[in-house]
Design a protein around this nucleic acid. Structure first.
Length: 975
RNA sequence: GCCCGGAUGGCGGAAUUGGUAGACGCGCCAGACUCAAAAUCUGGUAUUAGCAAUGAUGUGCAGGUUCGAUUCCUGUUCCGGGCACCA
């Protein structure tokens, strides 16, 4: 009987499905465990071998936990809203709903071939109204909430209104605008519109005007993390700043908790670093500098600094060019120059400013007074100060800050040195450990220690205060797009009114025209019927929510996916709790992971769930890169090219490399080329003059290349016989391709479709091979070659059960101690490895075990049955097939799936030996081996060793200099 | 520029707490079976000297700590990822 993996896998997938074996209930006497994959965006390209890596890892772990006796929640769904479907609709006229559902079907069938244990009854799609009803509901909760800074949690906006009516906002400063201050009487006297505008500045989901990343190419606004080097992540269109009405999430109110929460989750250090860098907390002080004003009334410039200790080293102030005060403080003499500078600055794109860091700036003519010394300090403007961070103004300390130093140098501003010999006059020194000089009351203090003293002093004089700043901004939450959740908001007289819960879901209307609306509005704005069809008057919000809206809470929905009364019943979320293991790529480090952490904290604040971190442990799978192959096409520029077409010639790697390096063809290559030209042009070869030639590497489909050797016949047929008549210059009778590791993508012809591999080797082989490739967390290029090795292993396993001629060879003989030892050491190794996510070494352990059993000719059910259960998470189909076979042999014929089996446990008694040979070394140098009982304690070991004849001889009567080390592995004597 | 991670045979990688470096797999070499091929099996495979036993060298590079370092420390080079005028 042969290992017919296709048949076996089909059979068991159908059986498991039929019996609903992976459906889990929300209550069980078993402990709960939640294993989650980052759900995919169902792109049209389908799955390539990179996608399943994380899914396989999570499936192994879910199955493993199930065998350990846990009630495991392991669901899957689709992040179905998003830009690509809309782009596709614009280009091909297929409605996004249609293409998305087609892509989902395709994804599903690909996933099904791999034998995953998802509970598909819990499948969710973010574009499904039953789902986005609750996305809209959560948005309404955010809209109807503010952040109570005293209690450090979100609270209903009604409660804030009650406070305003009683005492104004003196205890609840406005997060959207510091300058908003009012008393109870003022509040009660405000018009409705005024009140709503003020409340908008408190809401956790709010609408405001702000500079946004506007992408003309996509006709929409992008989040910071969707912009890469000044162009859009998708499409690569240029992105510019534009002021637009936008919805935002006030995530900055959660900055501290998002930072603090990182200490309680098991994320990799680099992931935590990325998040905390993104949040970018810095502590420092705001300091107010009084302006020495000429005409207008006196104004203050408030700067933000993390280094108040350097206050006496301030040589000038710098404002961001966009700073509101700039226009008010410039002197007549400087007016022209400043305007020229601002004009210049506006001409510079974001990209230019990032690319070339020029030192630019202009003097305003104004001076400020130093808060302590009273010295006059010139005020400058410069683009290196950002309007959006801190107060948009800084105090420049050239001796301590590199940028300030360069600026001072460039504009010949005298530099004050407050750190003596620690400043060499050539470069700034940002140390905190220098002793301060020329610093009045700070003289002689270490800078580090001076910080608090300065802040205290400033506070007493009421000219400054300690201040914490964050780099993170509020998250832009609206898109001028069609394919997203509509906002449940009605605009009436410039006021945003939330819809009520029972009006949800607000359905996304099907529309044909997806072109952008006027004035930066989305496509929905063109659908007047929908926009204006509002009972009670008003118009609907025309923008839609961004891609991350639906993905910020989906992990909660899986716990209670069909509930139409609540987004998730608290009983269900209490039972399942946090996601125990979350697997996905690092690319979501600062986007999705930060937003879902915020939403979870918010829902926790509302009391709707009992945990405020969504993911207990995060495992980042590495990317599987493509290993691209190149062929080298020779471009010939020949005389009379108008009449003659040059032949298409491909050059093997050796010659091409040589050519590309030296930029000139070797004699050997020249000869080969002229040979081809001769045969191509026949007798006319005298006429052919090559003017120039160069080589262009082009991607060849990796599926036509074996290792590095091109299958020339397949290549000729490629792309409708495009190169059917091409010539090939070979090396050693082979065409050798160039290679490079790149991201896997269709356009690079380096994608490998898992379906093909599953067909050829089976899902079990594929699963194990992806794991065997290396640590899950590591990125690595795909290489199909090694898959044979894993496949051989499974065939070998099969032959432990079936012989080609004899058929079944399983026996119910008693196992020998050696066999038991092998079994239990394998159980131990595999369990340890699986628990620490070292799946590659676990696969190795299986290989060693099977090799050993084959050598021992061990076909005993007693050994093989537990081994199969152990293997089931990795290779579920073959394990189930053989397991049922073994149980049949043992006459346990009632069907019980291996899925319901219990994982074998390690019996230490088979692992311990009574004595062990230890290597014995002298001064680290291996000398001999010595047999010592494992139960011996340290003193005994010493005695045994010292009694050893050889050792005695070495020691020559003298005692050893150092104690003997036994570390379960070796013994060493130091003399 | 800053932060984080990494570097081990021809290749992917292993070495879990400082303790016999190179497990396992690929590839390659030789052999068995076969008319032959495939499949399968057996042996070999870091470098170097040697017929061999064996010796020397060896985990990017230069040092250090230690009886002993792929592992810890200092410096340095290269590669990958993230952030980027954040005061």
């Amino acid at each position: 009987m042969e290992y017919n993996f296709n048949e076996i896998e089909k059979k068991w997938q159908a059986t498991w499905d039929e019996k609903g074996i992976y459906h889990v209930q929300d209550n069980s006497s078993k402990p709960a465990y939640y294993v989650l994959d980052m759900f995919p965006y169902p792109s049209g390209a389908g799955l390539h071998v990179g996608h399943p890596l994380g899914y396989i890892a999570s499936d192994i772990f879910a199955r493993y936990k199930r065998l350990e006796g846990f009630n495991v929640l392991h669901p899957m769904g689709y992040d179905a809203f998003g830009l690509p479907a809309e782009q596709y609709a614009i280009e091909h006229g297929v409605p996004p709903a249609e293409s998305t559902s087609k892509n989902i079907q395709n994804f599903r069938s690909q996933l099904d071939h791999l034998g995953f244990s998802y509970d598909w009854s819990r499948e969710i799609k973010t574009a499904d109204p039953h789902y986005y009803k609750w996305t809209q509901w959560i948005f309404l909760q955010l809209f109807n909430s503010y952040y109570n800074r005293h209690e450090n949690k979100a609270d209903r906006i009604e409660n804030l209104i009650v406070v305003f009516e009683k005492e104004g906002n003196k205890n609840f400063s406005c997060p959207g605008n510091d300058a908003t201050i009012f008393s109870a009487e003022m509040w009660n006297g405000f018009e409705e519109k005024m009140k709503m505008d003020i409340l908008m500045n408190y809401r956790l989901a709010y609408c405001g005007y702000g500079e946004v990343n506007w992408c003309e190419g996509l006709g929409t606004v992008l989040a910071n993390d969707e912009v890469i080097n000044g162009v859009s992540e998708r499409g690569g269109f240029p992105v510019e700043k534009k002021t637009l009405r936008q919805w935002y999430l006030r995530i900055t109110e959660y900055a501290d908790r998002l930072l603090e929460g990182l200490q309680h989750v098991d994320f990799s250090e680099s992931m935590k670093d990325m998040q905390s860098n993104w949040i970018g907390k810095s502590t420092g002080a705001e300091i107010s500098f009084e302006l020495l004003d000429n005409e207008n009334q006196t104004k203050n410039i408030v700067v933000y600094t993390t280094r108040p200790d350097t206050i006496f080293g301030v040589d000038f102030l710098v404002l961001a060019p966009e700073h509101i005060l700039v226009q008010k403080i410039i002197t007549k003499e400087q007016q022209q120059e400043i305007e020229k500078y601002i004009g210049y600055m506006k001409s510079r794109s974001e990209r230019e400013r990032q690319a070339e860091k020029k030192i630019t700036g202009s003097f305003t003519g104004a001076y400020a007074k130093h808060p302590f010394s009273g010295n006059l300090i010139p005020v400058w403007i410069s683009e290196y100060v950002l309007a959006g961070y801190g107060t948009g103004a800084i105090m420049a300390v050239p001796c301590g800050d590199e940028r300030d130093f360069k600026f001072a140098r460039h504009f010949d501003i005298p530099i004050t040195n407050i750190i003596g010999k620690d400043f060499n006059g050539e470069a700034a020194n940002d140390t905190k450990d220098a002793i301060l000089e020329k610093s009045d009351f700070l003289d002689g203090l270490r800078m580090r220690d001076a910080i608090q003293i300065v802040i205290q002093n400033l506070a007493e004089k009421n000219i400054g205060k300690a201040k914490v700043q964050y780099k993170m901004r509020d998250a832009a939450f609206s898109r001028q797009r069609y394919w997203g959740e509509p906002f449940p908001i009605i605009w009436k007289d410039g006021i945003a009114y939330p819809m009520t819960e029972n009006e949800l879901p607000l359905l996304l209307p099907p529309i044909k025209d997806l072109s952008p609306g006027l004035n930066g509005e989305g496509p929905l704005a063109n659908n007047r019927e929908w926009i204006e069809n509002v009972p009670g008057g008003g118009v609907r919000e025309s923008s839609t929510m961004p891609g991350y809206a639906g993905s910020s809470w989906y992990f909660l929905r899986y716990m209670d996916p069909h509930n139409d009364q609540k987004f998730c019943d608290k009983k269900a979320s209490d039972y399942w709790g946090q996601v125990d293991l979350y697997i996905g790529g690092t690319e979501h480090a600062v986007g999705h992971l930060l937003y879902s952490r915020m939403w979870t904290k918010f829902l926790f604040d509302l009391g709707t769930i009992s945990f405020d971190e969504p993911f207990k442990k995060l495992l980042n799978q590495g990317m599987i890169q493509g290993s691209s192959r190149f062929v080298y096409k020779l471009n010939l520029d020949i005389e009379n090219a108008s009449q003659l077409n040059a032949p298409v010639i491909f050059i093997s790697k050796k010659y091409a490399d040589d050519f590309l390096q030296k930029n000139i063809a070797s004699e050997e290559l020249e000869n080969k080329i002229s040979e081809i030209l001769k045969s191509y042009f026949g007798n006319d070869d005298d006429q052919i003059k090559i003017i120039s030639k160069n080589i262009i590497p082009i991607h060849a489909d990796v599926n036509m290349v074996d290792g590095f050797e091109l299958d020339i016949n397949a290549f000729k047929k490629w792309r409708n016989n495009e190169y059917a008549n091409a010539y090939f210059i070979l090396e050693y009778d082979q065409y050798i391709c160039g290679a490079e590791v790149e991201k896997m993508s269709k356009s690079k012809f380096n994608t490998i479709n898992p379906d093909d591999l599953v067909l050829k080797y089976g899902a079990d082989t594929f699963r194990m091979y992806e794991m065997f490739l290396g640590p899950v967390e590591q990125s690595k290029p795909w290489d199909t070659k090694g898959i044979e090795g894993v496949h051989r292993f499974l065939k070998k396993l099969w032959r432990l059960f079936f012989d080609e001629t004899k058929g079944n060879i399983i026996t119910i003989d008693k196992a020998s101690p050696a066999e038991m030892k092998l079994l239990h050491s394998t159980i131990k190794k595999v369990r340890d490895d699986t628990e620490r996510f070292s799946f590659n070494t676990a696969v190795s352990a299986f290989m060693i075990a099977v090799n050993e059993l084959a050598t021992l000719k061990c076909h005993k059910a007693e050994i093989l049955e537990p081994l199969l259960i152990l293997l089931a998470p990795y290779a579920p189909h073959i394990a189930e097939e053989l397991y049922q076979h073994v149980r049949g042999i043992q006459q346990k014929n009632n069907y019980e799936s291996i899925v319901d089996a219990l994982l074998p446990i390690v019996d230490e008694k088979y692992l311990t030996e009574t004595s062990k040979e230890y290597p014995l070394s002298v001064n680290g140098k291996l000398r001999t081996t010595i047999s010592i009982s494992l139960v011996a304690v340290q003193q005994e070991v010493e005695a045994i060793v010292l009694e050893n004849d050889i050792v005695k001889k070495w020691l020559d009567g003298k005692p050893p200099r150092k104690i003997i080390y036994v570390k379960n592995k070796m013994i060493n004597i130091v003399i």
